[in-house]
Amino acid sequence: MKNGFMTRRTLLSTSGALLVTGALGLFTPAVAKGLAPTPSMRGGSNNYRPGAPIVDRIGGGGFWMTGTVRRAGDGSPLAGQRIQVWAHTTEGHERDPESHGATLTDANGNYRIEMPQIVPAFGQPHGHLAYDSGEFKTVFLRPVMRNARETTLNADFVLQPA
């Protein structure tokens, strides 16, 4: 005969599922706290020049470096953060001062800076970025373009307090 409300099997499986959810729940605060800070990439700081000026664009432009800057943990966007950019481009080597420039993130934590086309150098078409303003821990990135013909490159920062 069937119990209209609940069989023993559903009782056991439901309570079991609740138990598992509860047990997992113990770990959820770590996930919610969540967004891990971006680690610096190997070689990211190579040919870095501290204090690159904030510019409308680097050189003649034609290529866009884009990305977001967020706070570790809650992932909230960080406005007004200074991101420095440099690369080997059609207009100069990584070491050349004129290959370096900086921009600030907008209210939504987005940044976007125009620069000359990145060309392959030292075996890969790649860019360099730095957050190095002190309020958060310094991060150096070295993203690689999937294809040297692309005209944009994205690099996202998740920063943790210094």
Binding site: G43, G123, Q124
Partner: peptide, 23 residues
């Protein structure tokens, strides 16, 4: 020649800490 072009990249390579596997 690569060292003169970009010293830190070549130092990374020689110390086996370069991000590029080909090096």
């Amino acid at each position: 020649g690569l060292w003169i072009t970009s010293p830190p990249d070549v130092v990374d390579v020689l110390l086996f800490r370069s991000p590029t596997p080909f090096s």
